[in-house]
């Protein structure tokens, strides 16, 4: 078929980005492998701030974008319980790196808001869903759920159907009460 002009760029075997090896060498990060073209490294919690500083300020070319922040709840699978997952993108060198940090329940983790503004809402959502607090965040409040909501929805021990509110007056799903009215 139409295969004339694309011969030079066809053999594009994915390679792990250079940054993965750099983080392993400089910060003692553990290489979590290269799966389907995406590299993941695990950074020790106390080195996280220096990793941020390296990615954003020291590295040339710098990682200008923090694409995504989320967490994984590993309840019953591992201690510490949570993994916070950062996705970084470097548009100049076209590198992507996924960084994971383990966090125990109730422990704080340094915020990336001083380095990337996009961390602002992403970390708030992470706090909202998992209850992981980010130290140094300017406005660590719930984002999607309302203020005063009880529980952390995306934790594995949060029931799928939600919790019954303690005050029955606010039980919106109480159909039998509505019928009586």
């Amino acid at each position: 078929m139409s295969g004339e002009h694309k011969t030079e760029q066809e053999p594009r075997e994915p390679k792990p980005p250079a940054i993965a090896a750099e983080l392993v060498e400089k910060f003692g990060a553990a290489d979590e492998g290269f799966f389907r073209g995406d590299a993941t490294v695990r950074v020790p919690g106390d080195k996280l701030i220096s990793v941020f500083a390296y990615l954003k300020r020291e590295r040339k070319p710098a990682f200008a974008m923090l694409v995504d922040v989320t967490a994984i709840d590993l309840l019953g699978l591992r201690e510490p319980r949570f993994d916070v997952v950062y996705h970084f993108l470097n548009i100049l060198s076209r590198e992507r790196i996924c960084i994971k940090v383990a966090v125990a329940e109730g422990k704080q983790i340094p915020s990336a808001t001083a380095f990337w503004n996009s961390a602002n809402w992403a970390e708030r959502e992470c706090y909202d869903m998992y209850g992981i607090e980010f130290r140094g965040h300017p406005y660590m409040k719930r984002l999607l759920m309302w203020e005063g909501f009880d529980g952390w929805p995306l934790r594995k021990d949060f029931p799928l159907k939600g919790k019954v509110p303690p005050d029955e007056k606010y039980a919106l799903n109480d159909v039998s009460r509505l019928r009586r009215l």
Partner: peptide, 22 residues
């Protein structure tokens, strides 16, 4: 089992799906 971050260019920008499968 594994983790992928699949991304495409949606109309508004990068739409990413981070899937963890165990």
């Amino acid at each position: 089992e594994g983790e992928v971050y699949g991304r495409t260019e949606a109309a508004n920008g990068e739409l990413g799906f981070y899937i963890v499968h165990k």
